[in-house]
Design a protein around this nucleic acid. Structure first.
Lengths: 180, 180
DNA sequence: CTCATTTATTATCTTTTGTTAACGAGTATT
DNA sequence: AATACTCGTTAACAAAAGATAATAAATGAG
């Protein structure tokens, strides 16, 4: 990859720092930005019909996130993205990204590489874990895949991400610790 | 979208017909093709450590599928793709697709539109269904989203896709029918 | 059509999960 | 320091799911 394009990419990136507890993208926002987490922790969640907050995903250092509903479908965001720690992100918006991509095939590669790949890879891994793994195994895989996240967030968020209740996750943890 | 590009796209598409029960992509193949189902039914599956076939996904008319592991990561396919009916597909490979995309921004749009979008959309919908829905609701949503599939495949495949056992799916069906 | 195979259902039993509520530990607030 | 909150754990019970096996229904092959 050409160094010139790296510079061009960097010139087109913004950076921003959020305090713990700030909202980066609110539900119903139509924000096209693509974010890269330099430092910090972000969770996406929604409020279900019972009024409960359900955490959909957690993002930490070196992860990319964005409002998929707007980026892909031009619809308002289904999730709220909130920082759980003071967080520094780099960001650009999809338009810039695409302009760079179309004018330059190296950028297309970056686009595909960063964008499609990481997000699709995570998505497929996650579906895998639901189809092939029991909740217990799923938790253990999450521990392995995201060791930098689990110790920094409440278990109830993890429970949501794994598709189980917090009470059930607590029991899973107990079962696992008994085995060791 | 320009009609010229449509012609160009069509010239770069192959078409092929498979008998019921044929393998389109075998596990460990490194096939880059992107397939569009004109008519028929395809399932992807793998054989787990217990020797059981686990169905990962089902595809029918107007759906796109491909070997994500090779396309995105240049790794051998994790799944086998097998036809469950006589099936006609259109296909191209990613290289052709990307050549078209880079030389022409309309193609890029098609690329993004067809490729990223449909696959990512399906992936996210599916994760949603695991995080937010009970197995019973998940089954009902699958019925709604893929009415053209359920009546054409054995329930045990659907069970795998939904992440439950065939026995459990049978009970779910009974519970639902009792309520009506 | 008949027989063999596959698939779906049902039953039984065990395990896990959901739900709700209670409790205690730890934080935060005032 | 006292109070209120949040969070994780535990308990108790009901509901659901997994495992296994038996049976019924459907499908396919000859």
């Amino acid at each position: 990859m050409n160094i010139k394009f790296l510079y061009k990419l960097l010139r087109n990136l913004g950076s921003k720092t959020f305090e713990k507890g700030e909202i980066i993208i609110d539900e119903a926002d139509k924000i096209n930005n693509v974010f890269y987490i330099r430092k910090g922790l972000v969770r996406s969640y929604l409020i279900n019909e019972k009024g409960e907050e359900i955490t959909f995903q957690l993002f930490a250092e070196r992860q990319i996130f964005g409002n998929v509903h707007t980026i892909l479908f031009n619809e308002p965001s289904k999730f709220t993205f909130e920082t759980l720690e003071n967080t520094k992100v780099y960001f650009t918006d999809l338009k810039t990204f695409q302009d760079l991509s179309t004018s330059n095939s190296d950028f297309l590669k970056i686009d595909n590489a960063i964008f499609g790949r990481q997000i699709l890879k995570q998505a497929f891994q996650r579906i895998d874990s639901f189809v092939f793994l029991s909740p217990e195994k799923r938790y253990q895989q999450y521990l392995k895949d995201y060791p930098n996240i689990i110790s920094r967030v409440p278990d109830k968020y993890i429970a949501n991400v794994l598709g189980v209740t917090p009470v059930s996750l607590s029991r899973i943890r107990k079962r696992i610790s008994k085995k060791n």
